[in-house]
Design a binder for these strands. Structure first.
Length: 152
DNA sequence: GCCAACGTTGGC
DNA sequence: GCCAACGTTGGC
């Protein structure tokens, strides 16, 4: 059964337009175990991804992507010059894993967080809308995915 | 194993 | 830029 996810990115760092330009991007820099576990243990190639813009003027879902690889170790954890360098991680036992994400399409307009809050009842239990949530990779049900698409 | 201090996320 | 919420670290 196809699974769905929401993945956050700060558009100033990497936006839906950036993804469109490169086509496929390794989802580097996740340093949260829960988010890592979703990528490492649950994601399958072809899973649907809602590409979410965070920390910006209009936070919200900006387009669609899909999981494009099996999980593999995040190379940035071993690069001393990287912001994501983790001196505690060993190459023989990598701590951080990622998947590649491929561009599908950009929404005509962002389905904003504000809009999603207005649909909270229809969306049901949704980690994104929970108070204080900071998870950057989180699961979305097929029904939530379909509903969000209908809001574009 | 507790918990205070600290760092980060992300909406506003 | 502020700050609430949360995760992690490290001393004890």
């Amino acid at each position: 059964m196809k699974q769905y996810w929401l993945m956050k990115s700060e558009p100033e760092e990497f936006s839906i337009d950036s993804l469109k330009k490169v086509g496929t991007e390794p989802w580097t820099g996740v340093r949260n175990y829960q988010a890592r576990n979703f990528m490492m243990k649950s994601m399958k190639v072809g899973d649907g991804v809602l590409f979410y813009h965070s920390n910006c003027e209009v936070p919200g879902v900006a387009g669609l992507a899909e999981v494009a690889s099996e999980a593999y170790p995040d190379p940035t954890q071993f690069k001393k010059k990287s912001d994501y360098y983790d001196p505690a991680s060993k190459p023989e036992e990598p701590r951080w894993w990622l998947v590649d994400v491929a561009f599908k399409r950009k929404f005509k307009r962002v389905v904003s967080l504000e809009q999603l809050r207005g649909e909270a009842e229809a969306l049901g239990e949704f980690a994104l809308l929970q108070r204080g949530n900071r998870l950057s990779v989180l699961p979305v049900t097929a029904a939530q995915y379909a509903h969000i698409l209908s809001l574009e």
